[in-house]
Design a protein around this nucleic acid. Sequence first.
DNA 1: GTTTTCAGAATTGCATGCAATAATCGCCAG
DNA 2: CTGGCGATTATTGCATGCAATTCTGAAAAC
Lengths: 230, 230
Amino acid sequence: MAEVEAFPVSATDKAVTHLRRLLGSGRLRPGERLKEQELSTEIGVSRTPLREALKLLAQEGLIEVLPNRGARVPLVSESEIDDLFPVMGALEGLAGTRAAAKATDADIDDVRALHYQMAAAWRRRDRATYHRLNREIHDHLLRLADSPTLTRLHGALDARVAGIRFEAEMDGALWDRAMGEHEDMLKALEARNGPALGAVLQRHLETKRETVLAALQEGFAGAGDGQRPV
Amino acid sequence: MAEVEAFPVSATDKAVTHLRRLLGSGRLRPGERLKEQELSTEIGVSRTPLREALKLLAQEGLIEVLPNRGARVPLVSESEIDDLFPVMGALEGLAGTRAAAKATDADIDDVRALHYQMAAAWRRRDRATYHRLNREIHDHLLRLADSPTLTRLHGALDARVAGIRFEAEMDGALWDRAMGEHEDMLKALEARNGPALGAVLQRHLETKRETVLAALQEGFAGAGDGQRPV
DNA sequence: GTTTTCAGAATTGCATGCAATAATCGCCAG
DNA sequence: CTGGCGATTATTGCATGCAATTCTGAAAAC
């Protein structure tokens, strides 16, 4: 067995990872104040690396730090969604264009397999499986685009909406529309038509934007299910 | 006069600003090691906020920090340029599309004024003025796009190539091509043709990519003129 | 009953100290 | 003279302490 590069995870990385999980899982809710003392003891690092982690996540927009007033989980507003999604659309559009150009036959086979599994989940209205496979397909396409910068930026933006539990709220019409767009994606990818794939992805983002906005208006603002009426 | 919100600049902000200037001005050269002690005394803050600043800039890709080995100014490689520019192209394309849709007549007048000043600078081969106005025009368009996320991401990517002194190397043919694209930009903006403006900006980025690559191959790698053969 | 005030507590921002890791340089073998 | 090795030095990573700021809440004023 090859010796694994014994890679000392820094306390800052540990804090970043831990905080990401807290934010993504909804343990920290929008508007909530993040106290350094509290978090540092929970995570098991001192305040210095924790503060570094907070600043890093703030730069990504996942939290916001106010001078002398500590960090908060930002409330996600409609205007932020409207700001965010066009940019994600542009990035995914580029990803699609590149992915179609670079995909090997094997890559396309992989995506096709995921696609048909997802279509099956959609037909039986299995939300959880659908969303898992959906994510896998999008990750796959992004990976095919083969651009670290693209992956990094997209990930940063995606993390901001990850807290919104829009999946649960996805209504039938929007879900069908999304599924239809996925059909078009597969066709464009099979035809290795980059511009078409890019265009579909941009349309798809618009559908996602509407889904997220609907969820937001239903009161699923931000991470967690804390605001759920039951 | 309204009382200005007296806002205390944090030591971290001070360090970030200072480091940005050092990197942008070429005082710190690619490959150079950044020592915390040295920098902190020069900037006048202690190591803690300096370290926060380093991590923030590292997240933007302006520097890289290796575990236990400190921070370095990364060498800019061709592959990084090839990675970066398509993404910037997608962002500027979006900016153009939005800018054309949102611009008021007054906005267009402003851009037109800048454009004709720049054209004059181009005709008399006044590089410095041309590049200043060029930057102003691009900033203006980005501002018209009216998207904080777009501005932020574009700024982060732009900072990475800002250190490369590609302006000095811009050869005649590429310069003329860039100027022609600016003509098209103005036309598209005047016609409020968003897609057209977006497309021009993407083409323009490709021209810039070639310019930067040429400069890189001439040995102007990264910030500063240290590698210049004289 | 509502608002203002102000002392005490809590919290953040930053500097410094100490342990752990990496770089450096002189020394010795070949 | 060159290349490898070990002690010394330099540097990073992190924890902690202290000053400055903000928050809290209870009493006083209206």
